[in-house]
Structure formats: C-alpha cells, structure tokens
C-alpha cells in the first residue's frame, strides 16, 4: 500500500477518524455560513430602511 493509502486507512480506524473530522468541519461550516447569511440579510434590510446608516451594507 502507498503511504497515502496507509495514512487514509489510519491503521484500520479510518472509518471512525475521517467521519469525525468531516462532521466537525461540517458543523463549524454550517454555523459560520448561517451566522454570516443572517448578518448579510440584516445589513440589506437596514440598507433598504436607512441607506446612510454606517451599519448598513
């Protein structure tokens, strides 16, 4: 087996290690995108109501 295959196999524990990392970055990614989307949406709404506001997008 190549070195990369060995690394991915994680000595037979790859089926547990990689899903753990995948799920971790999925959760962090969802939280980040959700929070940014909410902020952008509020900035746009504020811009419609008061375009000169420094907090508006």
């Amino acid at each position: 087996m190549s070195e990369i295959e060995n690394f991915l196999a994680m000595d037979g524990h790859g089926a547990f290690v990689w899903p753990a990392y995948g799920f971790a970055f999925l959760v962090l990614g969802v939280l980040l995108l959700w929070s940014l989307r909410e902020l952008r949406s509020h900035e746009r709404s504020l811009h419609k109501l008061r375009p000169q506001d420094p907090d508006a997008a």
Partner: peptide
Amino acid sequence: ALLLIRVRSALLARKIRALR
C-alpha cells in the same frame, strides 16, 4: 468570531425593528 458576528446581527435586527 461567530459570537461577535451573531451579536452584531442581533443588534442590527433590533435597530431594524425600531426603525419599522
């Protein structure tokens, strides 16, 4: 970082409600 973004977002939401 996310907390700061979310608090900023919540403060904007309050401002929008007040303006409306």
